[in-house]
Simulated scan of single mutants.
Amino acid sequence: MAGLFVNQAAVYADARPTYPKEWFAKLASLTDHHDLAWDVGTGNGQSAIGVAEHYGKVVATDVSEAQLRLAIPNPKVQYVHTPLSMPDEQLISAMGGENSVDLITVAQAVHWFDLPTFYSLANRLLRKPGGVIAVWSYNYKISPIEHSMTRFFETTLPYWDPRTQHAFDGYRALPFPFEDVGLGTEGDPATLEMEQELSFDRLLGVLRSWSAVATAKERGVDLLSERVVKELEEEWGGKEVVRTVTYKTFMLAGKPKME
């Protein structure tokens, strides 16, 4: 997965939306303690920065060194490179041992993970009782530009990794073996919205940050050719237009099941 985002790490960091502060306040209200959080697949740290407003320390990890080099500095956030080769026990030790993490967050990334391995780690690391895990994502369904996004998305279909299907489906089929805390549960994600001010250049940045666009380019196919960009610009209303758009998002949150 890391390789898909190496070449467009800077584009990803600049184009992706920021998450509402209210989300992090709500998640913080669900945990009994606020000492340590783990932001997994942090990318450039967009989620980690929000989490840091509510927790004493955030360990933000990613398998991509390129992404971490562009991470947003914050005195409460420690960025750590965790290559796929890192043994589980080493990661657990780096996090402070089992039963030490109050909140685990995964923004726009959990569908890339080896889920059984990750969920096993999460269960071992989360504080019991009182620890919470939350995963969320969004997809191409952005209003009020649904038509343009759907039409462009259809051109990308041959180039997506099969794991992204979970995101396309709104995480409705994503395994999530944790106890319900009232913010989305397995088979029934919570639906949320993110409003963003978006220029046409930022919209292009969003599209260029898609892994399928990068994969297509590696195969010699430019999905954002001059012709396609011109069509999108006309539908947008002109390059100088700034629109308020709404990302349709979905979240699953839970706590370890006590046996």
Rank of each mutant, 00 (worst) to 15 (best):
Q8Y: 12
W160R: 02
P144V: 01
F5S: 12
N74G: 07
R16A: 09
K248W: 09
V58N: 02
R172A: 06
K230S: 15
P175E: 15
E195N: 02
K21F: 10
V101T: 02
T191P: 09
D35F: 02
T150G: 09
V206T: 11
L174E: 10
A214F: 06
R227P: 11
T42M: 00
N74M: 06
K255T: 12
V58D: 04
T42C: 05
L203K: 04
N7M: 11
I133P: 01
F178V: 09
L183M: 14
A2C: 07
T156A: 11
K230T: 14
F24G: 02
A25L: 13
L125Q: 00
V181C: 02
D161H: 13
V229W: 12
V228Q: 14
F118Q: 03
K57A: 08
S120Y: 02
V206Y: 13
I133Q: 00
F5K: 09
S64R: 03
D62Q: 09
L203A: 04
T244F: 13
M251H: 10
A13I: 04
V106L: 15
E234I: 08
T244Q: 15
A9S: 14
T155I: 05
L126P: 06
T31K: 00
K128D: 10
F118M: 06
T244E: 15
E233D: 12
A190W: 12
E146I: 15
P158A: 03
V80D: 08
S209R: 08
G97E: 09
Q90L: 04
A37V: 01
Y19I: 04
F200Q: 13
P256W: 00
H111Q: 12
L203E: 04
S199T: 09
P75A: 10
M194K: 13
L36S: 07
E179W: 02
P158C: 02
I133V: 08
D169H: 06
F113S: 02
A253I: 01
V58M: 03
T105Y: 00
A52V: 08
V229F: 11
T42G: 05
R243T: 04
G237N: 13
